[in-house]
Design a protein around this nucleic acid. Structure first.
Lengths: 197, 197
DNA sequence: AATTTTATATACGGTTCGTATGTGAAATGT
DNA sequence: ACATTTCACATACGAACCGTATATAAAATT
């Protein structure tokens, strides 16, 4: 059976990213051994360094994948809401819930920023942030939100949401804490609304 | 000259923490070599492992120190404000500005959570958070803020503030971005206020 | 069919961490 | 005051890991 080179290469990339998601989430970035990780994928470090440059590069690829998945999900949930304002609240709640996933938490929220630096400068450009920002921009244009800097508002909102998730996950009883966090988030977000007359 | 043991030991701890603040801030936690770091302090790794257990232990000590300094500063600034509500806003702005300091940013915001886990479970108990929470509790008791969970509100507020700082520091022109972030923060915080009648 | 490319495997060197052991000075007891 | 014990720190050692340099075999190209 003749296998095209680009096919197997793509498959190997997928295998490596999948193995990395698992290992990074379970052990954390620094404790993840590249020998073990590549062996789990049925390969060696050779494949890794050829495809991703170095350990950091692999993390960047993993972060990009998860971030994109999160952004897609958040946008879907936001779009399903009645209006843009409800959408913004739904997106925030969605981020909080998604960040309870250990993969998201360990890889995107903890190791990602520490190893790759500030999310706004990631190669993936942080799709999550983009989604929130464009929602905010629409709401400002509609006169529903105060005319704040959209980037600033989006950063603070997602910062609040993601930080809430860290707190929830570390707490003893996540299920009882989640609603408190969502309630506080909704209150905060309401501060962006224009004053009622 | 007879030097008491406990004296020199305390001095050595101070030296090590000082060297670690410098090196961790400049190179980041994982790139910091404990051989170099201890040599800078005029000691060897022996002193380090005896005093702090391991590399993580040293980071924890450094984080504790910086976090405490930040909490003291924020509380002073908050107390100087006219009332508790103005104090809360001033504290938030103070966190944002303090987080522009590379030491704070690299050590407390990036490496700290990645290596030590969620800040609410740090040995230092995260003094910054305590300050904000007690301010929030007072404001709720006064009927100025909505009766939300104080811990949740404090977490989200500080999350927003610290995340804003990461954004600012990574931006091209921090000085022009800072006021936008502070403005957005004040708007968000206003969402915690009880509805005006 | 011969030649070139290249995706991955293998081999190696350098660095780093944590522990195990050694040592000399302060602390303690008689 | 001297002998003994404690312990804070230094030194020595082993294991793990990363990134690169080299080798190889299979696909691509001519």
């Amino acid at each position: 059976m003749v296998r095209k080179r680009s096919e197997t290469m793509q498959e190997n990339r997928v295998k490596l990213i999948a193995a990395a998601r698992k290992t990074f989430a379970e052990k954390g970035y620094s404790a993840a051994s590249m020998d073990e990780l590549t062996a789990d994928a049925g390969l060696t470090r050779g494949a890794l360094y050829h495809n991703f440059g170095d350990k950091r590069g692999l993390l960047a690829a993993v972060v990009d994948q998860i971030d994109t998945e999160m952004a897609v999900r958040a946008q879907e949930i936001g779009a399903r809401a009645g209006n843009d304002w409800q959408g913004l609240l739904a997106e925030g709640a969605a981020y909080i819930e998604m960040a309870l996933n250990p993969e998201v938490q360990r890889i995107v929220l903890l190791d990602g920023p520490a190893v790759l630096g500030d999310p706004s400068q990631w190669p993936s450009q942080n799709n999550c942030l983009q989604v929130t920002r464009s929602t905010v921009e629409r709401l400002i244009a509609q006169g529903i939100l105060k005319p704040l800097d959209p980037e600033a508002a989006a950063r603070l909102l997602s910062g609040a949401a993601l930080n809430a998730a860290l707190w929830i996950a570390a707490s003893q009883d996540p299920q009882s804490v989640l609603p408190k966090a969502v309630e506080a988030f909704r209150a905060l977000a309401a501060g962006l609304l224009v004053e009622r007359l």
